[in-house]
Write a protein that binds this DNA or RNA. Structure first.
Lengths: 251, 251
DNA sequence: TTCGATTTGTTCGTATGTATT
DNA sequence: TAATACATACGAACAAATCGA
């Protein structure tokens, strides 16, 4: 049997979809790590025994999903969570005046626990699976604006302790990526309004029961595998959540 | 001078971008109306004097922006606001149980007024320009969930009266599209939490000052020209706002 | 029902332009 | 400068879906 994609077997998918799947498999396997270049289109065409055009079409989709990044003259790279480009893709809170500051983080608590029902459902965990529960306060221009409560399956980040978490450089997803090879490539968020619980109100400097924006986010890696459940409580007196389908990318 | 795009002149843009611009111009001019098919790729290639591949690449982008819709064997069509596909793209409120009902509408008020400062800014209006102000109550499964306040420049929809608005078939964007040729192709939304003003609380059946989700939406047509400012007040006790970058389209 | 024309979808190949190193 | 890599553009062939004769 040759390794050719075009070989005899009846293909359910178009060739470029198969190529995309095999590229994703290599990504999952860590053959090319975040920040690294994948092989050139010509080399991939040889390897998969397809034309360059087919490779390009597969890569096109991965680029559209922000899993890969192309740079003319340099190569095609695995996207990282260290670039402003991807930062804006995952962080949606902006000032009502339009300002887009990067937040500073304060770790409030870091503990190991068992998953509750909500986390089990959202993260497809086994009953009572061990998780990390992390509370993080985000400040914008020095002012507390967001309280984050994160739940991560403990098996995904062995040996992660409070010091390592607090001492990370860059974003939390950058930490998952650099230290555990967990590459968050997509998020799904559900937003609602609620009265601030007393703890939230206290931390954010609000009166109890003040209205806050609640964001329940599930972060996914390749193949839509969930890796993190995050609840954010946002003080929207001076900031808001920006949902701009398009406009990000230059057209 | 030939009409060829490829003709000698130094090209600032790639050819397919020029083609895209010219296609968009024809769309704006109403050469092909929503629901109609545009000419086949082969015919467009002749018309613009470029290869089919170049036409395809231009159309690819317009399809990604949901301005055009391709159907193998049939043709390429101007997107309409009557299809479920586009409906989900513009309507983001879902049940907390995951249900995705289509809302029913009750027109609460319809009046002519002058733009306030906020509308002037968002819609790039001249000072005190005439606008329509429309209040609409949306029910999901019969229960009032969303109060919409819309502001539209009066010049965009001449002769639109309360009866015509209330008697429309389909969505509001469908009305703009069918009756005025105004094709909403993109929206930008900013979300925050607030205490329900008394009128909002009354209409939605909430107690005064209950937390509600506030959505400020600007709807744009071609060339990012704003056409509508909409403020939505959402009761999020049983529903929430879904922001799922990706996942809509099958991957 | 079948067949043929039309249209988009996929795949291949080639040539040339442009950015990077 | 030369080599490499992605970007653009062209053309050709066949597959798959659609539609009407």
């Amino acid at each position: 049997m040759s390794s050719s994609l075009a070989a005899g077997s009846p293909m359910l998918n178009p060739l470029y979809k198969e190529v995309k799947i095999r590229l994703t498999r290599s990504l999952v396997a860590g053959e090319w790590k975040p920040g690294e270049a994948i092989p050139s289109e010509a080399r991939l065409a040889e390897r998969f025994n397809v034309s360059v055009g087919t490779i390009r079409k597969a890569i096109d989709e991965l680029v559209a999903e922000k899993i890969l990044v192309r740079q003319q003259g340099r190569g095609t790279f695995v996207a990282t969570h260290t670039e402003d480009r991807t930062l804006y893709y995952f962080f949606h809170i902006v000032g009502k005046d339009g300002s887009r500051a990067q937040p500073s983080h304060d770790l409030l608590s870091f503990r190991r626990a068992r998953a509750d029902a909500e986390a089990e459902r959202a993260l497809a965990l086994t009953r009572g699976e061990r998780v990390l529960r992390i509370e993080n306060l985000l400040r914008l221009a020095g002012v507390p604006v967001i309280l984050d409560e994160m739940v991560i399956p403990a098996r995904l980040c062995p040996n992660l302790d409070e010091a390592a978490f607090a001492g990370r450089e860059g974003t939390i997803y950058g930490l998952y990526q650099a230290r555990y090879g967990i590459n968050v490539v997509r998020i799904s968020e559900r937003l609602s309004a609620a009265a601030a619980p007393s703890r939230v109100a206290e931390v954010l400097g609000l009166r109890a029961n003040a209205p806050v924006l609640v964001i329940r986010r599930v972060a996914y890696t390749y193949h839509d595998a969930p890796v993190e459940l995050r609840t954010s409580w946002v003080d929207t007196r001076h900031h808001e959540y920006l949902s701009d389908l398009w406009k990000n990318e230059p057209r």
